[in-house]
Structures are given as C-alpha cells and as structure tokens.
Simulated scan of single mutants.
Amino acid sequence: MRMLVNVTCPIEPFNTMVRNGTAGEIIGRVIDDIKPESIYFTEQDGKRGAVMVVDVPDASDIPSIAEPWFLNFEAICEFRIAMTPDDLMKSNLSKLAEKWNEVQMN
C-alpha cells in the first residue's frame, strides 16, 4: 500500500548532528534502507522535515520505516494512505454514493 510519511525532526539533536557532520551520512543510510519512491525535504511547523512516498506491503513494515527517524533524530512520523487516480477510480464511488444515498433518503 502506498503511504505518505511526514517526518518532523526537532531542532535537537539535529543541530548537533549537523555541527558534528553526521546528519547527512545518517540521512543517506536511512534513505538507502527505506528506499522511498520519492522524498522531499521541507520545513514542517518551523522544524526540519521530510515528506516521503513509500510502499508499505504490510502494517508490520511500518516500524522499519519509522524507527530509523525515531532513534536517530527523535522525529515524529505520521503515516497516511495515499491513492493514485487509478486507485480512486477502482473504489467505484458511484456505487458507494448509490448505497449511502439510499440510507440517507430513508
């Protein structure tokens, strides 16, 4: 299942890792291990952050994605299911609307 993962890193310990030269190397290792479809680094709530698109075949895979960020950067990770337009089309919205409109009208 494709998921969006928002990662927010607190100012510390990240500042210390930038100063001692380890932040980039650790981020590289994390990315190599997780192998996201894409990753973008950005600001989130005034802190360093990243947004990743990852394939999560099973819920038991979530810790392997989150723990490197938790353990190395004391980060917050938020997981959201992401659908492509094809995924949305497979959901058969018109049939769902028909089913739930009937409930609402009764």
Rank of each mutant, 00 (worst) to 15 (best):
A75G: 02
M83P: 15
M105W: 03
Q44P: 08
V5E: 07
A59S: 15
M89I: 13
M89L: 11
S64M: 07
D32Q: 11
V5C: 12
N106I: 00
N6P: 01
M105L: 08
D33W: 08
N15P: 01
Y40C: 05
I31V: 11
A82D: 06
E78P: 03
W69A: 04
P68A: 13
S94T: 06
V30N: 08
V18L: 12
L88H: 09
K99A: 06
A50D: 08
D86I: 02
R2V: 14
N6S: 13
Q104H: 09
N101F: 07
E12A: 04
P63W: 13
P10G: 08
D45A: 11
P36G: 02
S94W: 01
M52I: 04
W69F: 14
I27Q: 10
S91P: 08
P57V: 10
I76T: 11
N72H: 11
E25S: 15
T42V: 15
F41K: 14
E74A: 08
I81V: 11
L88E: 03
F73M: 03
R48G: 07
S64A: 14
A59H: 08
I76H: 10
V7N: 08
D87T: 10
F14I: 05
C9H: 12
K95F: 01
D33H: 13
N92V: 00
D87S: 05
P13C: 09
V56G: 06
T42Y: 04
A97G: 06
L96Y: 03
P57W: 13
I81Q: 09
G49W: 07
T42L: 15
V51W: 03
N20W: 09
G21D: 06
A59L: 09
N72K: 05
W100T: 00
S94F: 05
D45E: 13
D86R: 14
F73W: 01
I34W: 00
A50M: 13
P85W: 10
M17Y: 05
F73E: 00
N20P: 15
F14C: 02
M1Q: 12
E102F: 03
D87I: 12
I76P: 01
I34K: 00
N106P: 00
D32R: 12
I76F: 08
M52S: 08
K35T: 14
I27T: 11
V7W: 03
S94E: 10
R19K: 08
F73C: 01
L4D: 00
K90G: 05
K99I: 09
E12F: 03
R19T: 05
F79E: 06
I76N: 11
C77E: 07
T22P: 01
I76M: 12
V30C: 07
P63N: 09
A66N: 13
P10A: 14
D32F: 14
R29V: 03
I31H: 07
V7D: 04
S91R: 14
Q44R: 06
M52W: 06
M3H: 09
P36N: 03
A66M: 09
D33C: 10
V18D: 04
M105A: 15
D87K: 04
P36H: 02
V7P: 08
E78G: 12
D58E: 13
L71M: 08
